[in-house]
Amino acid sequence: MARKLTPYFLLIPAFLIIGLFIYWPAVYSFNLSFHRETPFGTRMIYVGLKNFKRLFSSQVYTDSVKVTIAYVTLSVTITVILSLFLAMLLNQKIPAVRLYRTFIFAPYAISPAIAGTLWTFLLNPVVGHVNYFLMKTFGIQVEWLTTKPYAFYAVVFATVWKMMPFDIIFYLAGLQSIPDELLESARIDGASLWKRITKIIVPLLSPITFYLVIMNTITTMFAAFAIIDVMTKGGPANSTTTMIYRLYLDAFAFQRTGKAAAESVILFLIMAVITIFYFRLVEKRVHYQ
């Protein structure tokens, strides 16, 4: 009897922590999303689905959904394609390849807030290096962070730069696990480099690609807060206000807790769909070796 109970006993600390820091807040925000609350929590009014109705009838919120879709699609696509390309280059047997790898992985070790600050400096319209370069070579001046649509591109660019090393590491590992004989024999059979990439490397790497797409989507949707906050604060004209940034504003700048809770429930549902999609569909169809 005691032996049977031991595993459960050992699991208690983990469950306590998960329950306290994940389930309890989740239940709490679900409940809160049906209420409106005063900033100091002195009064709580049940409003049913009003918070959700208000969100979907608010243009500011639907705009943030659009921005999120554009931001996630663009940055995830660019990151995945660029990382695969860079990973293949870093997989070459060239001198000092480890040195290049280290340099390329560096952005991953930097905190998002610092990455944001760095790009803010580089993109400063007056004293930034990017504009200095553009000015010298093409004679143009771009107000990167304060005009549309450049601010959006700038944020996407910084996100890609920050996220890429993570993908490169995975792709490198994947590339190294592809047997040399496979590519060798393809080459002997006369397959061009393009053929070898599209017919062998990409299909063999597809499980990694799917994993990375999911991970990157999660990162850009939920964790890309710091870069936006530091670089643009959601501006100009909300063109970089993603759903998570809007949630931050509603919760911590405007103290609209009920509304913010409703937004977090929406994000939770999106997350749930992605996860189900990942487990049900993708896992079955992706090509494994």
């Binding site: 501006g235 100009p236 909300n238 405007f254």
Partner: peptide, 18 residues
């Protein structure tokens, strides 16, 4: 605080020609 954000967004929309 919310009004401040709204006014700032409005000015940005105006400056960007929207």
């Amino acid at each position: 605080p919310e009004i401040r954000e709204i006014v700032e967004t409005a000015i940005e929309k105006m400056l960007n020609g929207e």
